[in-house]
């Protein structure tokens, strides 16, 4: 549904997107993940036709961006990071206006506006001026506006980042409801959101895609066993960490305050030796736990690895 090939975008000396190639399959909810400034927004701006790539090509819903960009708006719905509206309009009027722009008939518009206001829970505010709306209400209205013409592809730029937990839950649920109706590409720097709604994940950093795979596969491939040990005896722990780093069955040791995280590559050996080795250093653990890496750890690992290279 979305095909990006060797896309590059240069802003002066800065390369915002660097030879990006990726594919989003029809029907998927694709989580476009990366730290701030990784090139997510630039990519979305190119996919919506707002920005032109320096080189490379992209196809969205069968529309070639370099040759046919003017037909793009009929096929896509876009929710910018900070949706803005004309403050003097009401949500009803705004959605109706969008419907008119897309050539919907009067009756179709009336039905669609009603349906969408209900979907995003703005029916009661339907006749109020948008000028007085909260951030969360504007986000929901933006989502409704992106859906008016039933687009095949929905592009969402950080749809929940600026919202409070309740608002975030609402919008994520809405996105989940939309799966099956259209292909969704949503950018975010928050992993919990991706873990919750996306079935595909692409990780981008410094304008380059470093991983693209189904969420489950990503978790299975990168998730390694990890042990956490919690103790106040920092000097002993540091000594212990130096010792551990020499072991072949240890991937990494990370000390963060009182908590030591040890990623291992041989689970059997680690279970046998790790705690014993801590004891031999006279470390008294307050907590010792075996756990699995979360997507967040995978992400940090990948991004770190990329920046080292």
């Amino acid at each position: 549904m979305i095909q990006i090939e060797n896309l590059t975008k240069q802003y002066g000396a800065v390369r915002a997107i660097d030879n990006l190639t990726m594919t989003v399959e029809p029907g998927s909810i694709f989580g476009f993940l990366g730290p701030n400034g990784a090139g997510k927004t630039t990519t979305l701006r190119i996919l919506t036709g707002l920005a032109k790539p320096t080189s490379g090509s992209a196809q969205v819903a069968g529309v070639n961006l370099s040759t046919d960009a003017r037909n793009l708006p009929r096929h896509i719905g876009f929710l910018p990071e900070e949706p803005v509206f004309y403050p003097w309009m009401t949500p009803r009027e705004f959605l109706d206006y969008i419907g008119r722009l897309h050539g919907l008939s009067i009756s179709d518009r009336a039905a669609r506006v009603k349906e969408l206001l209900e979907l995003v829970n703005l029916t009661d505010a339907g006749k109020r001026r948008i000028g007085g709306f909260s951030r969360g209400m504007r986000q929901r209205l933006g989502l409704a506006a992106a859906l008016v013409h039933r687009p095949e592809v929905l592009l969402l730029d950080e749809p929940v980042s600026a919202l409070d937990p309740a608002g975030r839950k609402d919008v994520l649920e809405l996105i989940e409801q939309l799966s099956g109706q259209c292909t969704i590409l949503m950018s975010t720097h928050i992993l919990a959101d991706v873990e919750r709604v996306c079935n595909m994940v692409g990780i981008i950093t410094r304008g380059r895609l470093i991983v693209q795979s189904p969420r489950e596969e990503l978790l299975n491939r990168y998730v390694q066993p990890v042990f956490e040990l919690d103790s106040d005896d920092v000097p002993s722990i540091q000594r212990w960490a130096e010792l551990l780093k020499k072991q072949t069955w240890i991937t990494s040791v990370n000390i963060d305050g009182n908590i030591t995280r040890i990623v291992v590559n041989d689970l059997v050996q680690a279970r046998k030796e790790l705690l014993a080795s801590a004891m031999s250093q006279q470390i008294v653990p307050r907590r010792y736990e075996e756990m699995r890496l979360s997507l967040e750890d995978v992400f940090l690992q990948l991004v770190e690895k990329e920046s080292v290279q």
Partner: peptide, 14 residues
Amino acid sequence: ERGTATMMLTHPVS
């Protein structure tokens, strides 16, 4: 400045 131009140009407005 407000960003409404961006919003509108992603709809069929030349």
